[in-house]
Design a binder for these strands. Structure first.
Lengths: 230, 230
DNA sequence: AATCTATGACTGACTAGTCAGTCATAGTCA
DNA sequence: TGACTATGACTGACTAGTCAGTCATAGATT
């Protein structure tokens, strides 16, 4: 309410003046206002992602996000309504492009096993052991407290993934590659080891490293029968 | 964070000195003091469990735990050093009896499939969809921030579980019940759908209920071949 | 009475969110 | 082009509120 804008303004002015040249130096391309704003927003998202993954929602301090993003705390509130909606929006921002990429399925050439192996391979590279994998763990962790996040994740990722897997399984059954017909009723079984690998890497990799690739191969052998020699 | 302002050490020193004689002397009159203390402690554990599961570690308030346990806040500090060690101890307290019960395996009679089905059945009843299942999710959530919890959980639950499953799988292979020999290298595959079921119940049951029992049956069909008619 | 246990008001460290003020850039005019 | 104004992105000190942990006091037990 009552402000004392007298002396407090002085040091801030000095610091601001000294800080900006240093920063503009590291950002090589001369940027328009809109561009800079977008960059800052991206930096905040990036920093928030790291902090939320490392500490969880409640334990994350906005001051830390701001510091990591090289931004003042107030700036965060120019881009996001509050901590909670920042978290929710963050999940959307990070997940949407991943879904977009994975939805662009490879052309339906080759056997079903080849398709699924291609899928597993990109999942391995893009999710397991990466920050995106940590994000999955974060959603599992915070989901119950953020129903909107859990809903979004179910709608955009889980239900689509399950549907896609079911379609592949049904194709595999129709072609005689997959024997177990009931598998189409529980595509979760197909995906389960991949999810376990994600969680394992976050929690137990230090104790017992897991060769996720090899594990997925064994799992596919289980479903399709022994590996064919290509 | 945690301050150590001298006096806190005093009562603990007194108690340590009085502990051993007290036990031998007061074992017979079981009803009053020791019993009440144990009951209070149990109530605190119970309440803390609910709160931590519902809110996560950081967002849980000790005032709420105290209120739910019907106890004053100070009482909590008569039983636990601080919030953090309370959480760690809580996990131990809840998990140890479960491990103890599951480790008491049924006698090795019948087929390997029967053994594993018995195992799955009790897991279904005792973990999936119960508060213990939520505890598993809680560990996944808080594990990275509580290495000691993750370590403990790996040592007491995961490594033992994996070893037990591996032994069963090897037995199954030796008896010709299981065809896929590499499965013994990744017992995680055997357990993965059960874990997925636990997580699914917490996050997505509202959107798409999952018949965990039936899913596990299909999974075992996949590993052992079609169900035999008993 | 002496000793142990429980209480809950209290303290102080910490943090989400605010807002008056700053300044680089965009826009306008001569 | 050069000078002058307008804009709004950005800052960070500050406020109001929260909550882990403490301790003087009351109560129970032996």
């Amino acid at each position: 309410m009552t402000r004392k804008p007298t002396k407090a303004a002085l040091p801030s002015a000095i610091r601001a003046g000294a800080k900006d040249p240093a920063r503009s130096k590291e950002e090589a391309p001369a940027s328009s206002r809109a561009t800079r704003a977008a960059e800052r927003r991206a930096a905040i998202v990036e920093a928030a992602m790291d902090e939320f993954i490392a500490r969880g929602f409640a334990a994350t301090r906005l001051d830390d996000i701001a510091k990591r993003a090289g931004v003042a705390k107030g700036t965060i509130y120019l881009h996001f309504k509050d901590k909670e909606s920042m978290f929710e929006e963050l999940v959307r921002i990070v997940i949407v492009p991943v879904v977009a990429r994975l939805t662009a399925l490879p052309p339906p050439a080759g056997s079903v096993r080849d398709l699924i192996e291609a899928f597993a391979s990109s999942f391995l590279k893009e999710v397991i052991g990466t920050r995106r994998g940590d994000l999955v763990r974060l959603i599992v962790a915070e989901g119950p407290r953020f129903p909107s996040v859990a809903d979004f994740y179910y709608r955009e990722v889980v239900s689509r993934g399950i549907a896609a897997m079911r379609a592949l399984i049904e194709l595999g059954i129709a072609r005689g590659e997959i024997r177990e017909k009931d598998l189409a009723r529980y595509p979760q079984i197909l995906v389960a080891p991949a999810m376990i690998a994600v969680i394992w890497q976050s929690l137990f990799a230090r104790h017992a490293p897991l060769d996720a690739q090899e594990m997925l191969r064994v799992h596919l052998d289980l479903i399709f029968g022994e590996r064919r020699t290509t």
